[in-house]
Computed example of a mutant assay.
Amino acid sequence: MIRIGIILGSTRPGRNGEQVATWVHDTASRRTDAEFELIDLRDHPLPHLDEPHGAMHGHYQHAHTKAWAARIAPFAGFVMVTPEYNRSTSGVLKNALDHLYAEWNDKAVGFVSYGVVGGARAAEQLRLICGALQMADVSRQVTLSLTSEFENYTTLEPTDHSATALDALLDQVVAWSTALAPLRAASRTAAPA
């Protein structure tokens, strides 16, 4: 069975992302077509990118990068839960993505975003970043507006529309993650020893 990581891309105190990621994980955990695991970036404190070599070479020098690579490598796909800060994703999520390269390749990714206008611009930025990492982004996404899906801007109350959109996003992430398995296998056999 394939494994899908749900990455919580905010580390702010009082973050709304924790509720969002829990909702995504609870919904996903009812499925039987994949295993889902929550990955909280608070549990993986990475300094600003400090590797002396580009990630595409895979010559990680620091223990924190090696541990992050080992955490990400086993997953076949991801759902990224992102806030929108200043029309983009969070710096901590961008930094976590930049630390690795091959561990992201040939994996599917979907986006659940939140913000005043649903975080759609953060998801669009992530599509560009993930494309450069050779990830396949699915077309469905979930955008949660702080004004209509959070009571008092703090308590998540997703609409039926958002719940339906999440189910469709998960369908696509699982399907694409499964379909990309031959590419991941070919990459592993082609990698130098």
Results as ranks from 00 to 15, higher is better:
residue 4 I to C: 01
residue 8 L to K: 02
residue 13 P to E: 14
residue 15 R to C: 10
residue 22 T to I: 08
residue 22 T to K: 05
residue 24 V to I: 12
residue 25 H to S: 07
residue 30 R to L: 11
residue 30 R to P: 00
residue 36 F to K: 00
residue 36 F to H: 00
residue 38 L to Y: 02
residue 40 D to Q: 03
residue 44 H to T: 06
residue 44 H to G: 02
residue 45 P to S: 06
residue 50 D to L: 08
residue 52 P to E: 13
residue 55 A to I: 09
residue 56 M to F: 15
residue 60 Y to I: 08
residue 61 Q to A: 15
residue 61 Q to S: 12
residue 61 Q to M: 07
residue 61 Q to Y: 03
residue 62 H to D: 04
residue 65 T to L: 09
residue 65 T to Y: 06
residue 66 K to E: 10
residue 68 W to I: 10
residue 68 W to Y: 05
residue 70 A to M: 06
residue 70 A to Y: 02
residue 71 R to A: 11
residue 72 I to M: 09
residue 73 A to I: 00
residue 75 F to D: 00
residue 76 A to R: 05
residue 76 A to N: 12
residue 78 F to H: 08
residue 80 M to S: 06
residue 83 P to L: 09
residue 84 E to A: 09
residue 85 Y to L: 11
residue 87 R to Y: 15
residue 89 T to C: 12
residue 91 G to Q: 07
residue 93 L to E: 02
residue 98 D to Q: 12
residue 101 Y to S: 14
residue 105 N to A: 15
residue 106 D to R: 09
residue 108 A to K: 03
residue 111 F to M: 10
residue 111 F to H: 09
residue 111 F to E: 02
residue 113 S to D: 01
residue 113 S to L: 02
residue 121 R to H: 14
residue 122 A to P: 07
residue 125 Q to N: 13
residue 126 L to V: 10
residue 130 C to L: 12
residue 131 G to Q: 09
residue 131 G to C: 06
residue 132 A to T: 02
residue 134 Q to I: 08
residue 138 V to A: 07
residue 138 V to K: 00
residue 139 S to E: 07
residue 139 S to K: 14
residue 139 S to H: 12
residue 141 Q to R: 15
residue 142 V to F: 03
residue 142 V to C: 09
residue 144 L to A: 05
residue 146 L to G: 10
residue 149 E to S: 13
residue 149 E to T: 08
residue 152 N to K: 10
residue 153 Y to I: 06
residue 153 Y to F: 15
residue 153 Y to E: 14
residue 153 Y to M: 13
residue 156 L to M: 05
residue 159 T to W: 02
residue 159 T to L: 04
residue 160 D to I: 01
residue 161 H to P: 00
residue 161 H to N: 00
residue 162 S to E: 01
residue 162 S to T: 00
residue 162 S to Y: 00
residue 163 A to K: 14
residue 167 D to T: 13
residue 173 V to N: 04
residue 176 W to C: 06
residue 177 S to G: 15
residue 177 S to Y: 01
residue 177 S to L: 00
residue 179 A to C: 03
residue 181 A to W: 01
residue 181 A to I: 01
residue 183 L to H: 10
residue 184 R to G: 13
residue 185 A to H: 11
residue 185 A to W: 02
residue 185 A to D: 14
residue 188 R to T: 12
residue 189 T to D: 04
residue 191 A to M: 04
residue 192 P to A: 10
